[in-house]
Amino acid sequence: MRIGLLGTGPWARAAYAPALAGHPGLEFAGVWGRRPEAAAALAQRYDVTPYTDVDALLADVDAVAVALPPSVQAPLAVRAARAGRHLLLDKPLALSVADARAVAEAAERAGVASVVFFTARFQKEPEAWIGEQASVAGWCTARAHWLGAVFTTDSPFAASPWRQEKGALWDLGPHALSVLMPILGDVTEVVAAGHGPGDTVHLVLDHAAGASSTVTLSQSVPPAAAGTGYELRGDHGVTVMPAASEDAVTALTRAADALLASAGTGRPHPCDASFGLRVTEILAAAEARLSANTE
């Protein structure tokens, strides 16, 4: 499968480009970016073609991987799907339900495969744990936290305008939901939502299987306080999601495996654009609840 990369920022350079270049089932064909000079530099690094016209790239590939801000990703994903290209997308799928729905509908209408890169879903130990817990009934509550230090360190992602505007809810919320929903079922209601220091948010969620969960998200904690964790409690006791031993490049390689499998079989992957849409709907509901609480 020939695949092109849309995006040249820190995430594209650190994760997407090396994953695409190193995948044995992919031919990394080229790079397009909003800054032509950055696209040329990244393309040169991997000895692939730089594109100044995104439609020219789409004409030369079977699939695209997108490492762009969500508001840019969504319309380009629609464009790629309409051109018949399979989609390896990043989270969140979009920053509005309408944009996310446009991507999901375009992929469905075009009959193209789509995979949204929710990191834990493609890391060996978390993926296995999620599958094991999803097969067990009787969970009554869950607790999740993802406390990052993007805004309190010299992280290259701190300058991201969409992260500055949307904060941890939209940056880290997709990760939390991608872990909780396969186990506890769809979120039926955002029961409560509140702000903490910086961009910290706290959510209380009801799930279709009858359980509830609490979620704390932040990208502004002190570095010493950073960390992630997922805990389930129910009929079988308590279980905690194990830490991942694999880095983002390895996880993205697994996501590319999933895209190849979905394209080859025609069977949707659980983390396809329709799931990305559902995550966006829940994030939008949580954002509305947070806004209502501050009025």
Rank of each mutant, 00 (worst) to 15 (best):
W129I: 01
D90H: 13
P222Q: 10
A21Q: 08
A137Q: 15
M181E: 12
A211C: 02
L260W: 07
E132R: 15
S245R: 15
K91R: 14
R2A: 11
G198S: 04
L68K: 02
L259T: 02
L217H: 08
P182K: 00
C271L: 11
Q123H: 15
P242W: 01
A56Y: 00
P75T: 02
V150F: 07
G148C: 07
T49V: 11
T119H: 15
D60F: 05
S71K: 13
E189M: 10
G194I: 04
A144P: 00
E246T: 02
A288G: 12
F151V: 13
F118V: 08
P24R: 10
A21S: 08
A12F: 09
E37N: 09
A226D: 03
R289D: 09
G30D: 05
G210Q: 04
E105K: 06
E287F: 12
I183Q: 04
S262Y: 09
L290G: 08
A113I: 05
S262K: 03
A14N: 13
D53T: 03
R101P: 02
E127W: 15
V61R: 04
F157T: 03
T200F: 03
P69E: 06
F151Y: 08
R254S: 13
P223A: 10
V221M: 06
L283M: 10
V249K: 05
T153Q: 05
A248Q: 15
R101A: 14
G234A: 02
E108L: 10
D90N: 14
T253N: 02
H236F: 11
V48W: 00
A77W: 10
F275N: 02
V136Q: 13
H236L: 14
V179Q: 09
T239V: 12
H269C: 04
A273L: 10
D257K: 03
P92N: 07
P242M: 08
S160N: 14
G4V: 00
R45I: 07
G237Q: 07
P223Q: 09
E27A: 14
L290V: 10
E127Q: 15
A288R: 15
A110I: 05
G276V: 07
D186I: 09
A208Y: 01
W139R: 02
R34W: 09
H202V: 12
S218G: 04
S160R: 11
G198M: 05
L26E: 10
P50M: 03
E295M: 14
Q164Y: 07
A41L: 07
M181K: 10
E231Y: 06
V190L: 00
T119N: 15
W32M: 07
V190W: 00
P50Y: 01
T49E: 09
P10H: 15
P156K: 08
S212Y: 14
R13F: 13
R85I: 05
A106N: 05
A285M: 06
T294C: 13
M1F: 05
S220W: 09
E108I: 09
A43W: 04
